[in-house]
Simulated scan of single mutants.
Amino acid sequence: MNIIIYTLIILTFFYFLLKWSASVPSKKITKSLRFFSLLIFIILAVLFAIGGKFLLTLPLTLISLALIKLKGLSLFQIFSLFRLIQTLRQSGRFSFNKSQRNNPSSISVAEAYKILNLNIDNKPTKELVNQAYIKIQKKIHPDISPETSRLSAIVNEAKDIVLRDIS
């Protein structure tokens, strides 16, 4: 009985964590998680070194070095994809139900900026829009996963709308 309660508590915690991450800018999440992960790995490596467990310090040190050098981890890509899906679900443009197709009406300008993670107040350049578009498409392109073809079509439409708004 206790296992069920603990499982429900853990799942509830992760649900609210993912819900929170959908509203926070992905760069802030990336920097915070990388910093805290790095800090935890360094502290554990030092504690293991002090305790004489030198064999355990090597993997933690290597992970810490990888966090410093890498530009992105798959965990951060999952957060970004989750944010995109949440944005589209809130606007009614995406559902996990395959029988329901995406809304044929066009996306508003504000939604297009939000889908591409761009700030509507600061008019971005074409290069910035293309960079944001490519960053998202690398994660959801239909060649990578056929299930994401609807998401890819929505992101294509959002890019076109933002580019029309800029020019």
Rank of each mutant, 00 (worst) to 15 (best):
S152W: 11
Q86D: 08
E147I: 12
L81N: 07
E147D: 03
S95E: 00
R164G: 02
L17T: 10
R101G: 05
V46K: 01
F94R: 01
N119G: 04
I107T: 08
Q137V: 11
I43T: 14
L70D: 04
N2A: 08
I4G: 14
F14Q: 00
A22I: 05
L17P: 03
A153Y: 06
I85T: 06
K31N: 10
A66H: 08
L81A: 09
K159E: 13
S32N: 13
Y133K: 00
I107E: 12
T7G: 15
L116T: 05
S95Y: 02
K19C: 05
A158Y: 06
S21N: 13
R89F: 02
K69R: 07
N156T: 13
K139R: 15
K69V: 08
S99C: 01
G72V: 14
P25M: 02
K28I: 15
K126T: 09
L18F: 08
A110H: 14
K123Y: 02
S108W: 09
V162C: 03
F82G: 11
Y133S: 07
I140S: 02
R93I: 00
Y133H: 04
F16D: 07
K28F: 10
K28C: 09
V24H: 04
L33A: 15
Q137K: 15
T148F: 10
T7N: 12
T125K: 00
L151K: 00
L70C: 07
S145I: 10
G51L: 15
V24F: 09
G72F: 13
K71V: 01
K135P: 05
L116G: 03
T12H: 04
K19W: 03
L128Q: 14
L39G: 10
A158P: 01
T7E: 14
T57D: 01
L151H: 04
I40L: 15
F82N: 11
T148H: 02
I5P: 00
K53G: 07
R150M: 10
I43G: 09
R164E: 10
A49P: 02
Y15T: 11
P59E: 09
L151M: 03
T148Y: 06
L75Y: 14
I4E: 09
I43S: 15
S152T: 13
E111V: 14
D160G: 13
I85S: 00
I140Y: 01
A49T: 15
Q100G: 03
L44W: 09
S26K: 13
T148V: 03
S91P: 04
I40A: 15
F41A: 14
Q86C: 10
N130R: 06
K19L: 11
Q100Y: 02
G92V: 00
T148M: 04
N130T: 10
T125N: 02
S152Q: 06
N117Y: 12
N119D: 12
Y15E: 02
A66N: 09
I42M: 15
L88T: 01
F14V: 08
I10W: 05
Q90D: 12
F16G: 00
E147R: 11
S64Y: 02
K138N: 10
Q100P: 00
R93E: 05
K135A: 14
K71A: 08
E147V: 05
T57E: 04
S26M: 14
Q90G: 08
Q137I: 14
Y6A: 11
Q86S: 06
P59V: 01
S108I: 05
I154D: 04
E111K: 04
I166P: 01
F82M: 09
L56M: 07
